[in-house]
Write a protein that binds this DNA or RNA. Sequence first.
DNA 1: CTTATCGGTATGATTTTTCATACTAAGTAT
DNA 2: ATACTTAGTATGAAAAATCATACCGATAAG
Lengths: 121, 121
Amino acid sequence: MNKDMTYEEFQEKVSDIILTESGNCPVTPVIQMLQGKWKLQIIYELCIQSPMRFGELKKMLKPITNTMLTNALKELEEDGLVHREQYNEIPPRVEYSLTEKGRDLLPVFYAISQWGMKYIP
Amino acid sequence: MNKDMTYEEFQEKVSDIILTESGNCPVTPVIQMLQGKWKLQIIYELCIQSPMRFGELKKMLKPITNTMLTNALKELEEDGLVHREQYNEIPPRVEYSLTEKGRDLLPVFYAISQWGMKYIP
DNA sequence: CTTATCGGTATGATTTTTCATACTAAGTAT
DNA sequence: ATACTTAGTATGAAAAATCATACCGATAAG
């Protein structure tokens, strides 16, 4: 599959994607990476405003718990989607922002929002 | 937010989306609708090949269990994304396909695949 | 008469996710 | 001295998701 494949080509050729090599589908691993109750929401918040402090994110995503937010952010950081910047102040300050890799998910949210505007009342 | 908003406008205005009315964000409800281990995968399979029989889907999504596949398909049908066509033959035959509403998620998968081709080794 | 087929259901167990709650450190403001 | 702040950790409980397994009905093939 070509890196410059257009949407029309995608539409025609989507059936070839998953059939190439069992590990080489460019869709399923992404789907799995973004699984969980909070990850997409966190990335979306960071699309909207970045950087954000831990407490700000927590407020936006209420009723998320500390544990959930911490774990999700840790995993997003491990996947290279989110950058964590820690300032050694008292009280502590930590800012989260999207990496370029994370920002590149914006088209996904755009597509989702297009669908949402069409189908959500 | 305008129905015809382009990606560039989206990129600029994404911060307005979630801020309109608490219930009116066109992204978060979609994210929630597609949550779970199997839903996106099922829709993606049906993007690739449609219609598909229960058993075919099960084979593609192995190691999914009957229960999981049944439940996910039922919920996707309730959400209007998937159509279930039952033929009264023996042995039974049931075919699943995407509705137009479901097919309209194709751009989401396209965006995901673009990201995947860029970032997945 | 037996077995196989297909699209599920039903059941209860197990695993995973999510949760509420309490707690910490280190300095600042009162 | 005390309380307040932030970004988490730690703990165990509760809830949800997922699992394996057995089973069904109706017919056709052997």
